[in-house]
């Protein structure tokens, strides 16, 4: 036979027989107790990692949205604070202005009242002075006239003098 030329290419039935048994044993035993659990474990781990990665991505996105939300909230709060401050300032300014106005009004009122009172007092005082002066003048004039008109001649000359003074129109 051609194959018997070289013993190397002539397969021994013994090795074929034992090899078939060995291979089948390996295939069955390893297939059931090694490959199956190992491949399952690897697959489980891979899917676990994939899941974890997906979850991490989701979390990242969530955190990002939360951050932007936070930022929006912060901005809003800042704005609110600014408006609050502005309002407060305005209110205080208004209050100050009002108080100033009120004070001015009061002051004006007090001033006018005082002025009024002063004028009144002044007028009253003047009237009194005038009255006093009048009485004093009358007294003085009486005394002077009594003394001057004690003689008859003087009396007549004075009357004459007064009469000259009166001009009939």
């Amino acid at each position: 036979m051609l194959l018997e030329i070289n013993p190397l290419v002539l397969p021994d039935i013994g090795l074929v027989f034992w090899n078939t048994i060995a291979f089948l044993v390996l295939l069955i035993v390893l297939g059931k107790f090694a490959w199956k659990p190992i491949l399952k474990a690897i697959n489980d781990r891979e899917s676990g990692i994939e899941e974890a990665l997906l979850k991490a991505d989701k979390m990242k996105a969530e955190i990002a949205t939360m951050q932007s939300e936070n930022e929006a909230l912060l901005a809003k709060a800042r704005e609110e604070r600014a408006t609050l401050i502005k309002e407060a300032k305005e209110a205080s300014d208004k209050m100050v202005a009002e108080a100033k106005e009120k004070a001015k009004l009061e002051y004006d009122k007090i001033l006018t009242d005082a002025q009024l009172a002063i004028t009144q007092q002044k007028n009253a005082a003047l009237t009194e002075v005038k009255n006093q002066v009048g009485t004093l003048v009358i007294e003085v004039a009486e005394k002077v006239l009594r003394k001057e008109l004690s003689n008859k001649a003087d009396q007549e000359s004075y009357i004459k003098q007064l009469a000259d003074g009166v001009k009939l129109n």
Binding site: D12, L15, N19, L26
Partner: peptide, 17 residues
């Protein structure tokens, strides 16, 4: 004749198994 001997190769195969 069927030679199913445990030869050196068969024994080595068993070692590897």
């Amino acid at each position: 004749l069927w030679d199913l001997s445990i030869t050196k190769n068969v024994a080595s195969l068993f070692v590897s198994v």
